[in-house]
Design a binder for these strands. Structure first.
Lengths: 165, 165
DNA sequence: CATATAAGTCAACATGACTGACGTAAAAAC
DNA sequence: GTTTTTACGTCAGTCATGTTGACTTATATG
């Protein structure tokens, strides 16, 4: 009952393992987000700006509502950050064609450049970890993180191989 | 060059996969940290308190410096939160025996109870994800996250099975 | 036309981070 | 045994990012 280690552990849900799983997430996120801070500082931006730049770059033409849904913050919070980015020419807004109330968001060239610069090192960090761990481990990483995400948001991540395994 | 999906992908370091790895981490962390907020609110505490409670519970007798090193915040920031927790009887401080300048931190019974309550749901979330993904995936999750963490902090996580896989 | 929705704005406030300066007690170095 | 360093704490001020609540404008939809 006290100690078990037989290769791949059948009792792998013990307290200690869960805590380790928790801490891995904490430390990885801490180090991961710290990666772009130096560059952000140069522009007088913070992590909130980074998140906006990232997701707009990822989903060009997304609406403000979409973005609010992803970030899970209030529109007042977003407005400050988004307003700055628009004003300083990193993001453009244009009215939606189907629904002209919407403001579709897109990165400008300047925005694309900043996004690239910011995410570059984060991507490198992921790439390094992926390479070191191997393809099979990456598959496991995906599965577990997907399971940690609220069901509603899992749809954002397409299944890798349609059918099996 | 445009699309590859042949089971386990040899070109698994492409842009798209890296971005997905990044986003998984973002969403998982977002949903994970949101889990305890309701309980924290009842006590008038925030996430900073949670982190302190968690790590003190995890490392009883740790010093203030240790805690600062883990959280990577300034002592002024920590002081406010830690001060509250001490004052309200969740954490005790006692001078170190070897070095009497140190204040060794420990949870009180009340603190242990709060910690349990706070982390309970997070652990349940991890357990659920682990169970759904399977033992092998958990191993992969560990490997990748460990690779994401700054080398200096990897030592916090003991190797699972001493020798080989 | 009435109502709902997408987006924005103004104001006030809370949390949790930061820098910089200074203080105290104990340990370590010389 | 005096000096210096270390561990911890504190005061004061600032900033980034989140919150609530109330209100506006333009457009879509019943």
């Amino acid at each position: 009952m006290t100690d078990v280690k037989t290769g791949i552990n059948p009792l792998f849900l013990r307290e200690e393992e869960l805590r380790q799983g928790l801490e891995l997430l904490f430390f990885a996120y801490r180090d991961f987000t710290g990666e772009a801070d130096a560059i952000l500082d140069e522009y007088g931006f913070g992590r909130a700006h980074h998140r906006v730049i990232y997701f707009v770059g990822r989903n060009p033409g997304m609406t403000v509502s979409d973005l609010l849904g992803i970030l899970r913050i209030t529109k007042q919070s977003l407005s400050r950050v988004l307003g700055q980015l628009v004003e300083e020419g990193f993001i453009t807004q244009r009215p939606g064609t189907r629904d002209r109330r919407q403001r579709l968001l897109e990165l400008t060239e300047k925005g694309v450049e900043l996004e690239r610069q910011l995410t570059e090192r984060q991507r490198a960090r992921i790439a390094r970890a992926y390479r070191a761990a191997g393809a099979e481990a990456v598959e496991g990483y995906r599965k577990v993180l997907l399971g940690l995400i609220d069901e509603a948001d899992r749809a954002r991540f397409p299944a890798r191989t349609p059918g099996r395994r």
